[in-house]
Amino acid sequence: MSATQPSIGERIVYKEFPPITRHRLALYCGASGDHNPIHVDFDFARQAGFPDVFSHGMLVMAYLGQALTDAVPPSRIRSFSTRFAAITELGARLTCEGTVTELIEHNGEKQAKLSLTTRDQSGEIKLVGEAVITF
């Protein structure tokens, strides 16, 4: 994204990710230190009432953060917040998007508010969020 003024409704963030695998969950478990067995132990997940393990919420948030920083240099991001909307199952193919919802000026700096979403291949929203960027 260039530093030119974006327009309302413009999609600035867009990135697709490969399916979430058991291997990816195990790698994330080790890298993040989040060793909750519900994300990597099939038997534990079944005993908890789930059909299988599912993704760490913070992994899904990391995907959205990566999509945002691929589109906007980190030095231009003023805020980034998210809310988890649904569990992300094993095998989900996630797509992250961000569109401009508002143009504002704050302390003399031109900024844009972005509405962010992460959806799976069925279109189910897994994560919603907002970012404020400068342009």
Rank of each mutant, 00 (worst) to 15 (best):
K110S: 15
S79Y: 07
K113S: 10
E130P: 02
I38N: 02
A112K: 00
A85Y: 01
T117P: 02
I20N: 04
I133S: 11
E109K: 08
G108W: 10
I8R: 00
F84P: 06
E102H: 11
D34L: 02
L68P: 08
Q121D: 15
D52L: 07
S115Y: 01
G98Y: 08
T82N: 09
D70T: 07
V53E: 03
L25I: 13
Q121L: 11
A3Y: 09
V13S: 05
V132F: 06
E97L: 08
T88D: 13
A48T: 04
R78W: 08
Q121N: 11
E16L: 05
L25G: 12
T4D: 14
K126P: 08
N36F: 03
K15T: 07
R78N: 10
L116Q: 00
E102N: 12
S115V: 00
I12G: 08
D120E: 10
I12D: 07
H23I: 13
V100P: 05
N107H: 11
D34N: 03
N36A: 06
D41S: 08
L90P: 05
D70Q: 06
P18L: 08
A45I: 05
Y28I: 10
K110V: 06
V53T: 12
S81L: 05
R22D: 11
G65Q: 07
I77C: 11
T88V: 15
A26T: 14
S7G: 12
A86W: 12
A3R: 07
V13Y: 03
H56R: 00
S122I: 04
I20P: 09
L27T: 13
D120T: 09
H35E: 06
G65M: 07
A131V: 12
Q121S: 14
K110P: 15
Q5T: 13
L94K: 00
R11S: 11
T101H: 01
R24D: 14
F42T: 09
V128M: 10
A31H: 03
G49I: 07
D41A: 08
G98W: 04
R46D: 03
E105H: 07
T99A: 12
A71G: 02
P19G: 12
A26N: 14
L116E: 03
F50H: 05
